[in-house]
Design a protein around this nucleic acid. Structure first.
Lengths: 246, 246
DNA sequence: TCACATTTGTCCGTATGTATC
DNA sequence: AGATACATACGGACAAATGTG
């Protein structure tokens, strides 16, 4: 927590809880509140902002859903600044896809378009660090599989690392969004080791092609890989009952 | 509001307000609660869910921020189901871009990549309805300008209509995200009629090229258009104080 | 113009649950 | 096991906004 006592300013216009969420957001943007730091307790905040605890709590709900804070109960608990808002945006993306009744086919088409571009840039721009990270990722995935653990997380990370290697963080965010949506769909089906194994193999070959700067081979592999993932998902039933993220 | 009285189920596990937000979300996904419909008052909901009004309000804050409901005070007010969650996701996208310190250049590069793809598909797939909508959009923009009104909203809509013409709603969502981010940046500079006028002219010519199916011309125009928009934005100072969306 | 009803917005006090020491 | 410091939740109250008669 910052040492200044007056970084929180009492409330004026609009709804009070919006002001509170807005003020705390700004403090995060400005770097005055940093990831990992703990905010004062709700009682304390209520005193500083000169509002009731209910108002503070509604403001905190907004910040929590926006991914700016996480809340822990119990002794030593409280609200803490988080370091990324990506997960929460992913959840909202999933909601939107549902409401707009997006098909897996449409999502895969866009995914392929974006990953094609990413791969093209990655072949040109990937440096040693990127290659090393991709390599380690594949090793980790293989290790998981050997322990009879699904390597889904590692396999998703491969595509995020590719996006990073393309040297544009907007692409990383968009890939993350699409992957969250896919993982959401995946969560509705039983684990399938064969799929995971196949994905790792594709990743391995794609990385080889990147290192060799064999653009045609890399593209073809990517295409096959993503189409196969799509095929796994295509048979899924639509069930609005399951797993609504908050 | 649905006629059944028992669509709301009393609360069990996790945090109560999360359960409430989750239940209402599911009702929207299932189509039991439809856009425009009004939820019972907070008091009423508290009774049905068998929780306090404070708990209901925290649940509503989540749904409001997620874009599922909007809230109006006063007589005849209450909470109403909204028809899209897109704007709120856009706001979260802007937050993420800020936290990740994304540059306008990076955003424009990705925008161009995506709109190139969209334009390519639109040239092939746009039907009469799409063309008509694009035409009307341009007329509306010109009318705005003649009345000395900025045509920013209409100009943004042109790109959404293009995405629609590409016949893939995921692209519509991604374009919307990027446009919200751009409009956020635009809000930090004084209105510029010359920019708006130029954009409309580009849109007009792009539409002509689409109708003629002149791919090369359309692409070149798009490229120039988006680069010009970027140039307008590039000189902007970064000010974390201004306009934090809630 | 003026009460009036409805509903959100806000406050206070209090009690319970929970995780750590 | 007991004390502590939190978030979570409840109940009752009043203020403010907004439309109606």
């Amino acid at each position: 927590m910052a040492k200044q006592k007056d970084i929180f300013i009492p409330i004026r216009g609009q709804r009070a809880f919006e002001e509170i969420a807005s003020q705390i957001k700004k403090l995060v943007f400005k770097g005055i509140l940093k990831p990992g730091e703990r905010l004062p307790s709700e009682m304390d905040l209520a005193g500083r902002f000169n509002v009731s605890r209910q108002t503070i709590r509604e403001g905190l709900r907004i910040l929590e859903l926006s991914g700016f804070i996480k809340v822990q109960k119990g002794y030593g608990g409280g609200t803490f600044i988080k370091d990324t808002t990506l997960n929460k945006m992913g959840d909202l993306f999933v909601d939107t896809l549902r409401l707009e009744k997006i098909t897996i086919e449409d999502l895969t088409v866009v995914r392929l378009e974006n990953e094609r571009i990413i791969l093209n840039y990655a072949i040109d721009l990937a440096d040693e660090k990127d290659i090393k990270a991709l390599h380690e990722n594949i090793l980790r995935a293989k290790a998981d599989l050997k322990k009879n653990k699904m390597a889904t997380a590692a396999n998703f990370e491969f595509h995020k690392l590719l996006a990073k290697a393309s040297k544009n963080n907007v692409r990383v965010i968009l890939v993350e969004l699409i992957l969250v949506a896919l993982s959401h769909m995946l969560s509705r089906r039983p684990p399938n080791f064969e799929t995971t194994r196949s994905a790792i193999e594709y990743h391995d070959k794609i990385l080889e092609a990147i290192i060799k700067k064999d653009r045609a081979a890399a593209m073809a592999l990517l295409e096959d890989h993503l189409k196969e993932v799509e095929h796994q998902l295509r048979t899924l039933p639509y069930d609005p009952e399951i797993s609504v993220a908050i």
